[in-house]
């Protein structure tokens, strides 16, 4: 068990750095699309050190302090219960038989924690941001949960390990090819949960309220920056496991998650921003229908 925890910490450390560099590269891609040079790809590390180096900080109360801690715990929890590399002792993480349900709650855990924390900061912009964020996340969860249920029904298992095992044996065994409907629903839901345009009205710096982090600085901000590195990577790994056959080596994981993240980046640089009510309507139309089609397909055409 001790060994397993050590391995999980090593894979967490590696993936957090992968996430930081990935975020830098994404910023670089955004800049290049706008015909700029953009920030250096290692800027995230400097920002992290800078935020940690603030000499004073303010706390508004216990929940304000716990908000980013919950957020970070949500990201790390999601990561720790997702097998990064299938069948690997080193990067297998703490996957167990019912973990898809646990991952679902981890997805929402951080957002709820931030809602309480940002609420206690007392800033009106934070309250607006949290309301928008929770509303949008709830709409995103609908097609996402449908996709997840579809996968669980198709492979008759709630264990991510078993789901990945069922997809082994060639590219045609991936959920992507065996049931394209739920993959489409899941990948559209992914756009919403990655908080990139067109669904980034919650956090966008260009919006007058930048949302939940308005009052956060110093160590709190550093925790949130680290979470922004680990959480999207954990989600990308989860989607890779659900739809794209998992990974057999760390390199394969890196290539597949890069592709998953780039999907949201390419959509992000191409489309303008939705307002919250528009994005909620959007999620409850096409992705929802695709998700239901996927479930119907699994139920009636695959058994």
């Amino acid at each position: 068990m001790g060994e397993k925890i050590l391995f999980a910490l090593i894979s967490l450390f590696l993936t957090i750095n992968y996430g930081f560099l990935m975020n830098g590269v994404i910023r670089k891609i955004y800049a290049r699309v706008g015909r700029r040079h953009g920030i250096p790809f290692y800027q995230m590390y400097i920002d992290l050190i800078k935020t940690l180096a603030l000499r004073t900080n303010i706390r508004h109360g216990t929940m304000f302090y716990l908000g980013p801690v919950f957020r970070f715990a949500g990201g790390v929890g999601l990561f720790l219960f997702t097998p990064v590399v299938f069948g690997s002792a080193m990067f297998g993480n703490l996957s167990f038989s019912g973990d898809v349900l646990l991952l679902l709650s981890f997805q929402f855990f951080g957002t709820l924690g931030m809602a309480l924390g940002a609420g206690e900061s007392g800033h009106p912009n934070a309250a607006i941001g949290v309301t928008r964020g929770l509303a949008q996340m709830t709409a995103v969860e609908v097609p996402f949960v449908l996709a997840l249920m579809g996968v669980a029904i198709q492979y008759d298992s709630l264990s991510l390990h078993d789901i990945v095992a069922a997809q082994q044996g060639g590219i045609m065994h991936w959920t992507l090819f065996t049931n394209p409907f739920i993959v489409a629903a899941g990948m559209l839901a992914l756009l919403g949960s990655f908080m990139r345009p067109p669904f980034d009205v919650v956090l966008a710096g260009q919006e007058i309220p930048i949302g939940p982090p308005t009052e956060y600085h110093s160590n709190y901000m550093a925790l949130m920056l680290s979470n922004r590195a680990i959480f999207p990577m954990a989600k990308a790994i989860l989607f890779m496991n659900l739809f794209f056959g998992g990974a057999n080596t760390y390199w394969e994981m890196m290539i597949k998650t890069f592709a998953v993240v780039m999907w949201s980046v390419f959509v992000g640089v191409s489309f303008p921003r939705f307002r919250v009510e528009q994005s909620i309507r959007w999620f409850l139309r096409v992705p929802l229908i695709l998700g239901i089609l996927g479930i119907v397909y699994v139920q009636f055409f695959m058994s």
Partner: peptide, 13 residues
């Protein structure tokens, strides 16, 4: 941005 200069909308950060 090339020089590590970024815009933040809130005085806290």
């Amino acid at each position: 941005y090339r020089f590590g200069v970024q815009w933040r909308p809130t005085p806290r950060q």
